[in-house]
Amino acid sequence: MELGESIENTAKREVYEETGLLVEELSLFNVFSGESYFRKLENQDEFYMVTIVYSSNKFTGTEKVSDEESLKLQFYKIDNLPKVMLGTHKNILHNFLKKQLTQK
């Protein structure tokens, strides 16, 4: 997050920097924090992450992998998600899918 930048603009900028996609119409999904978001780095720094998750179905641009921040960029069908995923990401995705199913 840059000084004076809103969370929404940070999300849009980060998506663009990492994927080349311009995202519009962000919808706040949830804020994740707590014990399961604790990290200890190799240099022994310790911190708790706060993850703010937005969703959007509206984006433009051409997908591109950022050499500095991304290894791979790919869209997945909901019934064919990657088997290997960070635990915190699995939790976020599980909660998002659960909410989507209850809204239908």
Score class of each variant (00 low, 15 high):
residue 68 E to K: 14
residue 34 G to M: 03
residue 34 G to E: 00
residue 65 V to S: 04
residue 40 K to N: 06
residue 41 L to S: 11
residue 59 F to T: 00
residue 53 V to D: 00
residue 43 N to M: 09
residue 51 T to M: 11
residue 32 F to Q: 00
residue 43 N to A: 09
residue 52 I to D: 03
residue 64 K to R: 13
residue 41 L to C: 10
residue 43 N to R: 09
residue 44 Q to S: 15
residue 53 V to P: 00
residue 70 S to K: 03
residue 31 V to S: 05
residue 55 S to V: 11
residue 38 F to H: 07
residue 38 F to D: 02
residue 42 E to S: 11
residue 30 N to Y: 06
residue 55 S to C: 12
residue 70 S to N: 04
residue 36 S to T: 11
residue 47 F to M: 07
residue 46 E to M: 12
residue 46 E to F: 06
residue 39 R to S: 11
residue 57 N to S: 14
residue 66 S to R: 01
residue 47 F to Q: 02
residue 53 V to T: 03
residue 29 F to Q: 02
residue 49 M to N: 14
residue 51 T to F: 01
residue 34 G to Y: 01
residue 60 T to C: 12
residue 62 T to V: 15
residue 37 Y to T: 06
residue 33 S to E: 08
residue 67 D to V: 15
residue 37 Y to P: 01
residue 66 S to F: 05
residue 54 Y to E: 03
residue 55 S to Y: 08
residue 64 K to D: 06
residue 64 K to I: 10
residue 37 Y to F: 14
residue 50 V to E: 07
residue 50 V to Q: 06
residue 46 E to N: 08
residue 63 E to G: 12
residue 34 G to S: 04
residue 54 Y to M: 06
residue 61 G to A: 09
residue 44 Q to E: 15
residue 48 Y to T: 04
residue 36 S to A: 13
residue 58 K to T: 11
residue 65 V to L: 05
residue 62 T to N: 15
residue 32 F to G: 01
residue 51 T to E: 09
residue 62 T to G: 13
residue 47 F to N: 01
residue 57 N to D: 08
residue 31 V to A: 07
residue 61 G to R: 04
residue 44 Q to L: 15
residue 47 F to A: 06
residue 43 N to S: 10
residue 69 E to G: 13
residue 66 S to Q: 03
residue 32 F to I: 02
residue 55 S to Q: 09
residue 49 M to V: 12
residue 43 N to W: 08
residue 34 G to I: 03
residue 60 T to A: 14
residue 30 N to R: 09
residue 68 E to Q: 12
residue 29 F to K: 00
residue 49 M to F: 08
residue 35 E to L: 11
residue 60 T to Y: 10
residue 63 E to A: 14
residue 64 K to H: 09
residue 45 D to M: 13
residue 68 E to G: 08
residue 31 V to C: 06
residue 37 Y to E: 14
residue 34 G to V: 03
residue 32 F to E: 02
residue 66 S to G: 04
residue 50 V to W: 00
residue 56 S to N: 00
residue 68 E to T: 12
residue 44 Q to K: 15
residue 39 R to C: 07
residue 62 T to S: 15
residue 58 K to F: 13
residue 47 F to G: 05
residue 67 D to K: 15
residue 47 F to V: 05
residue 54 Y to N: 02
residue 69 E to K: 15
residue 43 N to T: 08
residue 51 T to Y: 01
residue 34 G to D: 02
residue 60 T to G: 10
residue 47 F to K: 02
residue 63 E to V: 14
residue 30 N to G: 08
residue 57 N to T: 08
residue 67 D to G: 15
residue 63 E to P: 12
residue 70 S to H: 02
residue 29 F to N: 02
residue 38 F to S: 04
residue 50 V to T: 12
residue 52 I to T: 10
residue 43 N to H: 08
residue 33 S to G: 04
residue 46 E to H: 04
residue 59 F to W: 05
residue 45 D to F: 13
residue 63 E to L: 15
residue 50 V to C: 09
residue 40 K to Y: 03
residue 58 K to Q: 11
residue 68 E to Y: 09
residue 30 N to Q: 10
residue 35 E to S: 12
residue 40 K to M: 13
residue 62 T to Y: 12
residue 42 E to H: 07
residue 62 T to P: 07
